[in-house]
Amino acid sequence: MEKTAYRKGVLAILAELLQEPTDDTVGELPAMVKYLHEAFAALEYPVPLLAYSDWPKLAGGREALALAYNQSFVFPPETRVVPVESIYRQWTSDSSAQVPFAKEKGYLMSDAALHMKALYESYGLELPPAFSATPDHLGLELEFAVFLLENEAAERQAVFWREHLDWVDELADEAEKNGIPAFYRQVLKVIAAFLRADRENYEQVK
């Protein structure tokens, strides 16, 4: 299997794990772990097996994983994390913006979100209604990365990786600091490690 196919497969799995879990999600975890191990080895990406080999055990059943999902990303607000790019970006770079939080982080629908929305529209892609306020949700961005791998040249891919996929280390660090449930803490660590390694594909691409 060529490396691009492995990259698409990994991105698709990681995007799925950021959705609300289903019975299928839980049932597919052993196969996901096997595929990730094969893919990281083929890609020569430094993502250790121990970072994800326990996922089936940590997940438990669907109800347990659904609870972990809610505790990780929904409630309580004091410890949850929000896997949305805008939260980790300055809200806008527009110097004429009059809102008091224009230069701050932590708000939805930043410039990054508006750019993601414009990208979907430019490719004729429909934004799921549930994500109307978060078009820059990490799960959607990973799915869009798969789309670019399938439909665009490396130059266009490189721009997206640089502009929209360089913030996840901060998300993973916050998840660790906040002590979200172990399953999703590990998922975010693996996503961050994969994206760090994957960006090297584009270091020389202009």
Rank of each mutant, 00 (worst) to 15 (best):
H37T: 11
S53I: 10
W91P: 03
E63M: 14
S53C: 10
L50Y: 05
A41P: 01
V74Y: 09
P56A: 09
A41N: 08
L50M: 04
L65S: 02
A42V: 06
L49E: 14
Q90K: 14
A64R: 13
H37V: 00
K57W: 10
E38L: 06
P56N: 10
R62D: 07
H37W: 01
L50S: 14
K57G: 00
E78Y: 01
V47Y: 05
P46S: 11
P56K: 11
R62N: 08
Q71L: 15
R80N: 10
E44V: 13
R80E: 07
W55D: 08
E78T: 12
L49R: 12
L43V: 09
F73D: 05
A59K: 03
G61P: 06
P83C: 11
Q71P: 01
L65M: 01
R80G: 02
V82I: 15
V47R: 04
R62Q: 15
L49P: 04
S72W: 00
N70W: 00
P56I: 07
T79Q: 12
L49Q: 05
V47Q: 01
E44I: 09
V74K: 03
L65E: 06
A66C: 11
N70H: 09
Y35R: 02
E63I: 12
R80H: 01
Y52M: 10
Y88H: 04
F75Y: 13
A66V: 15
